[in-house]
């Protein structure tokens, strides 16, 4: 998948916004949104929040995990743990990127938050890479991948499946099926 396709999927995540207009409930295939009351927080999908924000119709309330201290704590936890730790959102990287690019002036310390998200991502990606390497070297056939987000899984595709495919073929060669046994025809 292309990262922009993952982004599209991630836009279904919900965030809180404070609208500055009144509107009745909007009925969408994915569920109802609203009703909108000026000044009262409401939960909407990310794509709608971004659109409303672009038209100056709302203020986005950043999710509570999008905060320097919380992200630092997550990073420390990630570093300490041998396995992957649970992320606050299935699409933390995408949601953070989208919201941070939309709300330049609503959130204080935005640069620090950006750095913290990137650090967290880097720690997890390097952990993923080394675990992929150990997985291949140990010759395992299955692995448990708890708490990996879609974007992270997407980053090792199609490398990992291709490599496993190839190793499987190499191993099968030893079974030594005769290639063309003309004498049996």
């Amino acid at each position: 998948m292309d990262p922009s396709e993952v982004e599209f999927i991630a836009e279904k995540e919900r965030v809180s916004i404070v609208p500055n207009f009144n509107n009745a409930t909007v009925h969408l295939i994915s569920g109802d949104v609203g009703p909108f009351r000026a000044g009262l927080p409401v939960n909407v999908p990310v794509w709608m929040a971004l659109n409303l924000r672009q038209r100056q119709k709302c203020r986005i309330l950043a999710p509570d995990w999008l905060d320097v201290d919380k992200l630092e704590a997550l990073k420390e936890e990630e570093k300490a743990s041998k396995y992957f730790t649970k992320m606050p959102s299935e699409h933390y990287m995408v949601v953070a990127q989208l919201i941070l690019s939309a709300v330049e002036d609503d959130i204080p310390r935005i640069e620090e938050i950006r750095m913290a998200v990137k650090n967290l991502w880097d720690v997890r990606i390097s952990k993923l890479r080394s675990s992929v390497d150990t997985f291949i070297k140990s010759g395992g056939s299955h692995a448990r991948l708890d708490y990996l987000t879609t974007m992270e899984i997407n980053s090792v595709r199609p490398l990992l499946p291709h490599a496993l495919d190839f190793i499987d073929r190499l191993n099968k060669a030893s079974e030594g099926a005769p290639r063309r046994d003309l004498s049996q025809d």
């Binding site: 890479r129 070297k137 190499l170 191993n171």
Partner: peptide, 20 residues
């Protein structure tokens, strides 16, 4: 043959890290 397959598989596994 078994020896050759062994070498093929092991070489690929070791080289994979670099490709990655």
């Amino acid at each position: 043959s078994p020896e050759i397959v062994n070498v093929l598989v092991e070489s690929f596994k070791q080289r994979f890290r670099k490709i990655l």
